[in-house]
Simulated assay, not measured.
Amino acid sequence: MPTKLPNKNDLRTKETRDLLLRSAETIFVRDGYESAELGEIASLAGRTKGAIYAHFKNKEDLFIALFAERMTLHADRMNENLAESTSVEQSLNIFREFYVSTLDDKNWSLLLLEFKLFAIRHPESKERLQKVYKELLPRAHQEEEFIKVFGSSGNDLSRSAAVATLGPILSALAIEEQFVPELLDEHTLKMVTARLFDALLTLPVR
């Protein structure tokens, strides 16, 4: 069956949704999750506040959608890069370079940490965030898939646990940089991040 082409209304709807997500990202990063206002997001997008409610239930729904979109884009980009790999060593180097490069997006690391802290105090929000993680990062056969790409670790730390630890490390470094920038400059942060990556995702033992 041929794929149905989007009509003008579909295109306008997608355009509005994309505009709202981009504006939301800007306002969330600028003001933080709890201080961000939907009116500001709508205004930046050149839309009414009602346009937000036509696409999202509330501010949390908007943030979760943005989070899911970012996770999907990052995963797609990572998979595209890994598709060019011809060895475990090359795959690890590709992932290492990708991981260190995410330091350039420290504001998002801080924003995500803020929402996680908010979610810990709000069980329903925590459950929603956990659901997104489970949908986008299914646990079934995850370790087997990581081993196919990165090889066996050769120690008692699973590849799944190592990968799951990488994100929180970025959030922690982004926080500490705010307080000791003279020690954690850009060069030092990337060096520390690379070394932590190497410690967690060592080459498999031959």
Rank of each mutant, 00 (worst) to 15 (best):
K4H: 06
L11C: 03
R12Y: 12
R12K: 13
D18M: 09
A24L: 05
T26V: 11
I27M: 04
I27H: 12
F28H: 00
F28K: 02
Y33W: 12
E34H: 09
S35Q: 14
A36S: 14
L38N: 08
G39I: 15
A45V: 06
G46P: 02
T48I: 10
T48N: 12
I52S: 01
I52F: 03
A54H: 06
K59C: 06
L62D: 01
F63R: 01
I64T: 02
R70E: 04
A75F: 13
R77W: 06
M78C: 09
N79I: 07
T86L: 14
T86Y: 02
T86H: 14
V88S: 13
Q90L: 13
N93V: 13
N93F: 02
I94Q: 06
F95R: 10
F98L: 13
Y99V: 01
L103P: 08
L103E: 06
K106I: 10
K106A: 14
W108Q: 03
S109E: 06
S109F: 06
L111P: 01
L111N: 05
L112Y: 11
E114Q: 13
F115W: 05
K116C: 02
R128Q: 11
Q130G: 05
V132Q: 00
Y133D: 02
L136K: 10
E144F: 09
E145D: 12
K148M: 07
K148H: 12
V149N: 00
G151A: 04
S152G: 09
D156S: 12
S160E: 08
S160Y: 03
S160H: 12
S160N: 01
A162C: 02
V163G: 07
A164E: 10
I169S: 04
F179Q: 00
V180R: 11
V180I: 15
E182R: 11
E182Q: 14
L183E: 14
L183C: 03
L184D: 11
E186W: 03
E186L: 11
A194T: 11
L196E: 04
L196G: 04
L196W: 08
F197G: 08
D198C: 12
V205D: 03
